[in-house]
Amino acid sequence: MAKQNLELKATSFTLSVLYINNADLDIIAAELDKKLAQAPHFFLGAPLILNLSALDDTPVDLASLRSLLIERQLVIVGITEASIPFSVQAKDLGLAVVKSGKQAATAKIPPRGTKIVKQNIRSGQQIYAKDADLIVFGAVGNGAEVIADGSIHVYGALRGKAMAGAGGDTQSVIIASSLEAELVSVAGQYWLAENLQQHCQAQRGCVRLEGESLTVELLP
């Protein structure tokens, strides 16, 4: 097999989180210098996530905060529990905005509606059911895309792409009368056609998450 130049694998890491509890950067700098003097090698080069929950909406320039940390040889990779303005700044600075496992697990799933489409979805068409389950009375053609924050039910052949749990809901499922999809994904975990075909050939089935990976359950 040819060597792949790119591979994407999900791996979990343990990262230290530095809580920034004061908006005054001078105070933060002084405090840091004190900590580093006590244990000079403890933080050195270690990737850090900044927890900004204490700052709420206090305007702090994230770029200055980052420079302050970099000057002290700290490697900052992202922020967490930050208000939206911080997330925007982080994006500009190329920093990640991460959710801790705890936070993700407790993320509220908004109450869902249902979006019903009573026709075939054709190549080039895209349907998105925001905060809702999606039900299609018809087929989803090759080159068409159906996306839902909830589950997707297709009462016809699913030949295009289907993405359920687009907002991160891992309980979402994809059900189709004939699973022939180009891609199926639940809460970001996806299979391409070839993966899907290893589990089912144009059969009626339900695709869902079991732990971190997808499975298909064939339906009668």
Binding site: R122, S123, Q125, G143, A144
Partner: peptide
């Protein structure tokens, strides 16, 4: 067939 499907989408939208 794929292109026809695409056109059917256009007819509908």
């Amino acid at each position: 067939v794929r292109d026809s499907d695409r056109i059917l989408g256009m007819l509908q939208s």
